[in-house]
């Protein structure tokens, strides 16, 4: 009876992260790598794990303003991630285009193409902010499971 909700609660303690670089300047990616790798921030505490294949992912971190050239690849990749998934947009680029805002090569805001659940603004955002965003995403994920 109460077993399935219990299991769902347990399941949310194991969010696997996947990073998509949608044309970012790499600043946000460095920040995400920092979040993962530097002992001080350690996302593994939350049970997170960066995974190599989109098919293993639960929480997607998207950085960058979605350039015209990567759009198809990003959308295809996004479809490869099995449900239930949660999307976190990292940096100000996916929100508005950031410093690339008026470029002809950029399709931001990204939520015209991909449903975004959590925005983490900043250029680049601090690791603490990214972790807070991931924690928020875990809450949303719990409802979707």
């Amino acid at each position: 009876m109460g077993l399935i909700p219990d299991f769902k609660k347990i399941a949310t303690r194991s969010p696997w992260l996947y990073r998509i670089n949608a044309g970012s300047c790499n600043g946000c990616d460095v920040e995400m790598a920092t979040t993962a790798l530097i002992p001080r921030y350690d996302v593994e505490r939350l049970g997170c794990q960066y995974c190599g294949s989109p098919k293993h992912a639960d929480i997607v971190l998207i950085s960058g303003p979605l350039t015209v050239r990567v759009k198809d690849a990003v959308l295809r990749m996004f479809d490869e991630i099995p449900e239930p998934k949660v999307t976190v947009a990292v940096g100000v680029c996916p929100i508005s285009g950031g410093i690339f805002r008026e470029s002809y090569a950029v399709l931001a805001p990204i939520d015209q193409y991909i449903p975004i659940d959590v925005n983490v603004p900043g250029c680049p955002p601090r690791p603490q902010a990214i972790i807070a965003g991931v924690a928020k995403a875990i809450e949303i994920w719990r409802e979707r499971l």
Binding site: K8, R13, P39, D42, R45, G47, D58, E83, P84
Partner: peptide
Amino acid sequence: LQSRVGPPLMQPFFDIIKLGFKRTM
């Protein structure tokens, strides 16, 4: 050893349970 806190000891069990809720593609 890397002076991090690290995941809870039960983490692999959580992972397996989590995978049970996902879709197979």
